[in-house]
Write a protein that binds this DNA or RNA. Structure first.
Length: 730
RNA sequence: GGAUCCGUAGCUCAGUUGGCUAGAGCGUUACAUUGACAUUGUAAAGGCCACAGGUUCAAGUCCUGUCGGAUCCACCA
């Protein structure tokens, strides 16, 4: 045996051996089940995935404790994320999504994902994960689609789904609307313009939206402006004179600016709400491509930022700007993916009415039917659930599960807007079906090259639709919604699609959901919601949340900082055990998980120590076998040194050579027993770091340094008699 | 603005319902070495436990306040 443990020589073989023995599938017995949080199908392993080790530890621990543990893996199509990556890939080839129709884009991404998938599983295997790989589920698998669509159909029938023109944050660059959770607020300094506005002066950072103003608001208690409330005033603007109503609303902060606000319901969430309260007209002046539309006169076609500069210059020229405050800082909403400014805009979106669905979730969490570890996340989830409002589930991207809704074309030709790639491969941008038909395109051509449709909701005359997987066959023409479901709509149903039918009787609710704390609101709360809705059961009993893996200085890993650690490199260099242990050892329940190469080498040393303990035992065993004259003697139990103390110092003064062999063994066995008990207590309460610390201390500083080296010095064969439970494995 | 968490050794962090001399890993220093392991062993140095009050026989731990940091939610015309 080598004096150094070389993981590279063993790991792969051991894993193959496990595969041969079929250790990955569940055995018969008391069930213990974990559903693996599905990584993106096209992802490769990053340090954060290393934390799945926690689930692997639980799976192995439970199996060694006699449970039929099952870990079901899977991958997520990760709609928006993946399309974003793919579009970057396209950009490198000088292409964009506008070169493809919907189906082509979908097919291409499918191929792209397929080419990249499988990588992460081979990496998981390198980490030694004991998941049942053959059962892997992909969120676009047939049975998943069926379930997801069935949920939508059921919700629609029961009135939980509605379509509405609602103000959503739209990313003109990524071409989709985003949920509130996908929007990030950043502090920024922007000029605050004081505009002359009829009899008023008002402050705004977005003068370009003034064309969409449909009211002016003041605070009801503001004496300065009281006389104007309810009046219509005349304002001179860039496009000439217009009349506008003055309303009173408590949303106005009297102390801010001049205490007067312009209301632009179509392009500001607050104004949208105010518009609803006061029944204001919604005047849309920015199209979803982020350009001003024909209602803005000479500014039509300009992008928001360009338009703003031009408008400010023109306002200045007309003497309509009173002053500019260049020191104004405010929060801007940006896309979490591309970082560009989001445009609050009104587009038709599908929503889930959350009110009735979230109530049982809140109840379950308050009653602790589902427990959170660490505890503090309970409060966070509850707080988040309480403020949660309706969830927009449609995304204007191709990569995802297409919403099973069909719009009737006949009679609605002038209401359905779409873009498509025509026969010649040309991109035909936004127009109505009627318009394209009159240009000589056939309906089939349009449908074939379809890229995206937008079906606005008119108050009186709604475009009728049916919810159906396939095109209705009634002789009329229908066209399917091009929007896809928000990824979290499908991954939120993960617990409903991962088990086999019969397992829902025995393995549901599953035991633990372990995941990154960041996605608690996106994912965990929604899984609970869907599970309660569809199965009337909680999906899991416990939720264990870990934090981000950061570098050894506590800095977030990022490419620009150059501090990204590739887990596979570490595994190749130091072994999977060392890497895994470094993510567990000395980690508190609180914050981030610091990972540095020093830490891994430290753990490698520990692994090596264990190796050498084994090596020592093996060497002595062969000497026992080769020398049969060595046998055990019995001894007295009455020696005072038998009082077991875990404290090293307490034992320092004792002379162990006086102890009989049996006494030594008893001491060791007793300590092992105590350690085991503690270990089990820690494991059962998800205190992995403490459990590992215990094993570390026992194997190294107690067994190796103390027992082998001091107590059994010169009497090494006795150590062979100690029974070591394999439960101490991890 | 609302909430949560954190300030403990040079660094990263433990410290259970208050209770003996406040711990670990890495780092530092000295010594040891034919011994299973130099990926080792034995030891040492290094702490006003952020600060100020309070409760208590007893506070790193509980309470109040101050300062500093992180995160979540809401909002910022």
């Amino acid at each position: 045996m080598d004096s150094k443990y070389q993981p590279g020589l063993f790991e792969e073989n051991i894993y193959r051996e496990w595969e041969k023995k079929g250790l990955f599938s569940a055995k018969v017995g008391k069930p213990f089940t974990i559903l693996m949080p599905p990584p993106n199908a096209n992802a490769s392993l990053h340090a954060g995935h290393g934390m799945y080790t926690i689930e692997d530890i639980l799976i192995r621990y439970k199996r060694l404790m006699g449970f039929a543990s099952l870990w079901v893996p899977g991958t997520d199509h990760a709609g928006f994320e993946t399309q974003f990556v793919y579009e970057k890939h396209l950009a490198k080839q000088g292409k964009s999504r506008f070169n493809f129709n919907r189906q082509e884009l979908y097919d291409n991404i499918y191929q792209f994902v397929k080419d990249n998938s499988g990588l992460i599983y081979s990496q998981f295997k390198k980490l030694g994960f004991l998941a049942d790989w053959e059962r892997s589920v992909f969120t676009l698998d047939k049975h998943v689609l069926e379930t997801v669509i069935q949920t939508f159909v059921k919700m629609e029938k029961e009135g939980y789904i509605y379509k509405d023109e609602y103000i959503v944050n739209y990313c003109p660059h990524c071409g989709t609307s985003l949920s509130e959770l996908e929007s990030v607020h950043v502090e920024r300094k922007d000029p605050l313009y004081y505009l002359k506005y009829g009899p008023f002066t008002l402050a705004t950072v977005r003068p370009e939206t003034k064309f969409g103003d449909t009211a002016i608001a003041v605070h009801p208690k503001d004496k300065r402006y009281k006389k104007w409330v309810g009046q219509t005033v005349e304002v001179t603007g860039l496009l000439g004179k217009f009349n506008i109503k003055v309303i009173a609303d408590t949303m106005v902060d009297m102390k801010f600016g001049t205490g007067v606000v312009k209301i632009t319901p179509a392009h500001d969430p607050n104004d949208f709400e105010a518009g609803k309260r006061h029944n204001l007209e919604i005047k849309k002046i920015i199209n979803i491509d982020g350009r001003l539309n024909e209602l803005t006169g000479p500014y039509v076609g300009l992008k928001v930022k360009v338009a703003r500069e031009k408008i400010v210059a023109d306002l200045k020229a007309k003497g309509l700007i009173e002053k500019i405050d260049n020191e104004y800082t405010h929060a801007v909403t940006v896309c979490y993916k591309c970082g560009r400014d989001l445009e609050p805009t009104i587009i038709p979106n599908w929503f889930i009415k959350v009110e009735g669905l979230k109530k049982p979730v809140i109840k379950i969490i308050e009653d602790e039917k589902i427990k959170f570890y660490p505890k503090r996340y309970k409060k966070q989830v509850l707080q988040w659930l309480k403020v949660m409002h309706d969830w927009p589930i449609s995304r204007q991207i191709a990569w995802g599960i297409r919403i099973p809704v069909w719009y009737r074309i006949n009679g609605n030709e002038d209401k359905i807007w779409l873009s498509f790639i025509n026969k010649k491969g040309e991109f035909k941008k936004g127009g109505t079906i009627a318009q394209f038909l009159s240009e000589g395109h056939s309906l089939d051509e349009i449908k074939l090259g379809l890229q995206q449709i937008t079906v606005p909701l008119y108050k009186e005359e709604k475009v009728d639709y049916v919810v159906s997987v396939n095109e209705p066959e009634d002789g009329r023409d229908w066209i399917q919604e091009t929007d896809t479901f928000d990824t979290w709509f499908s991954s939120g149903q993960w617990p409903l699609v991962t088990l086999k039918e019969e397992e829902y009787k025995t393995r549901f609710p599953t035991d633990v959901m372990g995941t990154l704390s960041d996605i608690l609101p996106f994912w965990v709360s929604r899984m609970i919601m869907f599970s309660l809705y569809q199965k009337k059961q909680i999906p899991f009993k416990d939720v264990y949340l870990w934090s981000k893996v950061v570098d050894s200085k506590g800095q977030k890993m990022s490419k620009s900082k150059g501090n990204v650690i590739n887990p596979i490199d570490l595994v190749n260099k130091y072994g999977a055990d060392a890497f895994r242990a470094s993510l567990i050892f000395g980690i508190g329940t609180g914050g981030n998980v610091p990972l540095g190469e020093e830490k891994v080498t430290g753990m490698r040393n520990f692994v090596n120590k264990v190796w050498n303990v084994g090596r020592f035992i093996k060497m002595n065993r062969t000497s026992v076998i080769s020398n049969p004259s060595i046998s055990l003697r019995t001894g007295s139990m009455r020696n005072p040194a038998n009082e077991v103390s875990v404290n090293k110092r307490d034992n320092a003064s004792l002379d162990f050579s006086l102890l009989a062999r049996n006494d030594k063994l008893n001491r060791l066995n007793k300590e092992l027993k105590i350690t085991k008990k503690k270990y089990i207590k820690f494991m059962d309460s998800y205190q992995f770091s403490k459990a590992l610390g215990l094993v570390y201390e026992f194997l190294w500083h107690r067994l190796a340094d103390f027992y082998i080296w001091k107590v059994f010095k010169g009497d090494k064969h006795s150590i062979l008699e100690v029974g070591f439970g394999s439960e101490l494995g991890e």
